[in-house]
Design a protein around this nucleic acid. Structure first.
Length: 530
RNA sequence: GGGCUCGUAGCUCAGUCAGGCAGAGCGUCUGGCUUUUAACCAGACGGCCUAGGGUUCAAAUCCCUACGAGCCCGCCA
């Protein structure tokens, strides 16, 4: 298929058909750890933003943290001391670790840091500040005045009859501090105040500036109007008929006289085989954890390669490596199509450095070197990779080390066995003859580099070499009749050292180990009879 | 009880909007690299496009129905 347009560019075209000036908005409630499911929203918004920029639209990009939402419950990661705070706005609750200004900042700070790494730079707003600054005052007034109209819209669209004390505005109780336990008893448009009664027994008056918030379904369209939002991605939870986007369209138009933003509905990210990512089920991979393991561009690519309305199946184990691989190939491929190039372009996160060492390959180097950076650098140099930027290599090494520790499946790991592996019992006579001869040669030779080792192993099959003659003698056959398959020899090496039939490139691998250790180990293996 | 999205090679997915020969990567297999088994290169294998019906000269693509997967609304309006 020729001329495949990336979804971001399709969206940009659709949006541009409506006008030239745009505001892309995204918002997340920082009620808990912000995970890579949430990341989809932000990356989706950023990609739409970039696509619009590329088409010379007059476009801005904002992120609104819903810091004024109430704490819904005591989440599993919170202790019971949070029970009295349930119902209070997140921005008014103490920080779990004590190092941040409040509860929402605790979760927001690492997330904003992650955004930087991902090359996403929206203008950041906090809902509590917007309310306190009075940005919502006009909307609150209209909502209070048109309360019944709003109720009618909600009833018609979502099919639910509101209770008679319902009000689009929820005052924050002056005494108990909760936002979901109050009812509105009156308001004064000139003084910009609202009267309330709270289930805690308190009665009082609050300001429209920071004294309460609009209920979510009204808050959202009010925000569109107040800030001028024209494009916004949101999860499918808001997207169904009767859902908050659906009611938002009507409320925006009929109450606030505003056209709802262009929707970008996205699906959830499924974690491995475990189902949807969700804080409540504990199926979560935080963005911070992912950034320890892969470059930010790969995370962007994960989101970008899939259309928003499709699930993304994400598995941080081996499939993640495949993803990294795919990205690296695409990045350096000269066969990339325009579509591929566009994806790479959109994946780009500024200020990053690249090495030409494949991630997958580094997992081997890392384990051969047992994580020792100097050894890793030696191996990398010997292999002829670009070592001009040690910093880049170190970043890669850190990622790989974390991946091995956090997500690598056992079959991707190997380790040099302390004791002779029992599987050496399976070695055949040729393999034993090879190992004992190999060991003897190692004993009397000087230091060998990777290539030496490599050549030495292959010399076994060439008539007239020392190793070839020794093997023939050991097997008591004529050297001319000796047939040697190097594959078998390599297998013998891996089994003796790692206890498994395959392993990393033999030359480098052996040269990274102590020669004396190898000589002894191969001798033991050759003689081992259970 | 309603609604939304998805279903294409062993795996992950493009292609569906705008109908025109069934695609890519990974994996597997084979071969090459005068031979670094997790490097690299080339090739091959691999499909009832979930199923059934309809529209059409022509359907993975549009329409209807069923099945499967995931999710949402109804509770916090």
């Amino acid at each position: 298929m020729a001329d495949i347009t990336h979804w971001a560019d399709v969206i940009a075209d659709e949006v541009l058909a409506k006008g030239k000036k745009h505001l892309v908005a995204t918002g997340i409630t920082p009620s808990g750890h912000i995970h890579i499911g949430n990341m989809r929203e932000v990356v989706t918004a950023d990609v739409a933003f970039r696509a619009l920029e590329d088409k010379d639209a007059d476009v801005e990009f904002i992120y609104i943290a819903d810091t004024y939402d109430p704490l819904r419950k005591v989440y599993p990661f919170l202790d019971e001391s949070y029970a009295p705070h349930v119902g209070k706005p997140l921005s008014e609750i103490p920080c779990p670790c004590g190092n941040h200004k409040n509860y929402s900042e605790h979760f927001l700070e690492p997330f904003l840091a992650a955004l930087e790494h991902l090359g996403i730079h929206p203008k950041v707003y906090r809902a509590d500040e917007l309310y306190k600054e009075g940005v919502y005052v006009e909307a609150i007034k209209q909502a209070l005045v048109k309360k019944d109209e709003i109720a009618a819209i909600l009833q018609k669209k979502s099919g639910k009859t509101p209770v008679d004390t319902w009000n689009p505005f929820n005052p924050i109780c002056n005494d108990c501090g909760k936002v979901n336990t109050t009812i509105v008893t009156g308001f004064d448009l000139d003084a910009e105040t609202v009267d309330y009664e709270c289930s805690c027994g308190s009665k009082g008056t609050v300001s429209m500036k920071g004294g309460g918030k609009l209920t979510w379904r009204v808050d959202w369209p009010a925000r569109w109007k107040a800030l001028g939002v024209t494009v916004e991605p949101f999860g499918k939870d808001h997207a169904s008929r009767g859902g908050s986007y659906d009611t938002g369209i009507s409320i925006a138009k009929e109450i606030f006289d505003y056209e709802a933003p262009h929707p970008i509905v996205y699906e959830w990210i499924m974690l491995g085989q475990k189902g949807a990512m969700s804080s409540s089920t504990g199926v979560v991979v935080s963005i911070a954890d992912m950034l320890k393991v892969v470059p930010p561009e790969v995370l962007r690519y994960l989101i970008i390669r899939t259309k928003p309305e499709k699930h993304i199946r994400f598995d941080p184990a081996l499939p993640l490596l495949t993803l990294v691989d795919e990205f690296e190939r695409l990045h350096s491929s000269d066969k990339a199509t325009d579509y591929d190039k566009r994806m790479i372009e959109l994946s780009h996160a500024a200020g990053l450095c690249h090495t030409d060492i494949p991630f997958k390959h580094m997992t081997t180097i890392y384990q051969v070197a047992a994580g020792d950076f100097d050894k890793i650098m030696n191996i990398v140099k010997r292999a002829g990779y670009d070592t001009s930027s040690e910093k880049c290599i170190r970043e890669l090494v850190d990622n790989v080390g974390n991946w091995l520790e956090m997500y690598a499946p056992d079959n991707a790991k190997f380790s040099v066995q302390e004791e002779l592996p029992v599987s050496t019992a399976q070695l055949n006579d040729l393999q034993r003859a090879f190992l004992s001869s190999f060991s003897a040669i190692l004993d009397k030779s000087g230091e060998l580099n990777g290539e030496d080792y490599h050549n030495l192993v292959y010399s076994a099959k060439e008539a007239g070499t020392e190793l070839n003659i020794m093997i023939a003698e050991s097997l008591n056959v004529d050297a001319a009749a000796l047939e040697v398959n190097p594959k078998e020899l390599f297998k013998a090496i891996y089994v003796s050292v790692l206890g498994q039939p395959s392993g990393p490139k033999a030359g480098w691998f052996l040269s990274s180990l102590e020669k004396d250790f190898l000589a002894m180990r191969f001798k033991e293996a050759a003689e081992y009879k259970p």
